[in-house]
Amino acid sequence: MHRLPPKTFLIVSLALLVVALALGLLSGPVAIAPTRLLGLLSSGQDMDSRILQSIRLPRVLLAALAGACLASCGAVMQGLFRNPLADPSLIGVSSGASVGASFVIFFGGAGFLGGTFELTAIAVGAFVGGLLATAIVYRLASSVTGTSVSTMLLAGIAITALAGAATSLFSFFADNEMLRRISLWQMGNLDGASWNRVAIIAAVVLPMMVLLPREGRALNAILLGESEARHLGIAVESLKRRLILITALGVGVAVAVSGVVAFVGLIVPHLVRLMIGPDHRYLIPGSALLGAVLLLLADTGARTLMAPSELPTGVVTALLGAPFFVALLLQQRRKVLD
């Protein structure tokens, strides 16, 4: 396994993020010349600048923030569970959010709640559902002696199954219109982007980007084992509580504003680890940057591949990401054999 220097990787990812942001702003049903981009963003009252400022800019920012959030939470979960196959949905947050969103769609009805208010209600339902599910999983796994990560994994599987059944029940009794919206929501979609949503997710993700990398050394020690980490001076119980709370909040908000965008939280940290190694001090910011890039590119694809209609973003993340990931795995394996 050959590694890249972490700092080089972070700089390249940052450059990629800038390119992906520009690409996202320029692409869409209405083509905009790259040379006009900065001028249109800063001022102007014509149609193109309004498209940029009130439609595309919030959308690309939402995609970048949600991608950064999901990927860095994935990195944290994989470290905390000491399992490279863990992802944020393990603690039940995604499935709980699905129940919350389906609940609102089902009882909100097609005509009862309209427009922006309905989208917001769905987001709130998803957020509350996600946090509730995580709280239950956490309670189940906690005892006087601390939180058992393996019990948590099992509790997460049980709650996910239960939540899946509840969502299926809502889908079963829903009418055609509701059913369509429940399943669209579960595919993950950024089409509800607005400045309000950008503000909400930014309020959670930006502090997270400062807080999470600080736990890098402690997470590195946790990879050795919980008691090993304790003997290295890490206050393991409070670390676990803190990280689970941050992850539940982060993923809860991301799922609330964008639906269940699968794949990013699992694959991105994995990719970054293959490139720069498992040191969380670099893995977390690296995952955030690459997660933002991946979701931006996927969302740009979702908007433009079948323009003027849109594909669900979550479908595109999997379509683009999975083959890329498989190629990378094969390449790594060849290197090991050489």
Binding site: M1, R82, N83, P84, L223, L224, G225, S227, E228, R230, H231, L232, G233, I234, A235, R273, G277, P278, D279
Partner: peptide, 25 residues
């Protein structure tokens, strides 16, 4: 915990580590 860890080191019977750290790390 941190103060104790500067003076006392413990090697458990077996440690499972599934992440590709180098020996140096």
């Amino acid at each position: 915990p941190e103060q104790l860890a500067r003076m006392m080191a413990v090697l458990p019977q077996s440690s499972r580590l599934d992440f590709p750290f180098t020996a140096r790390e």
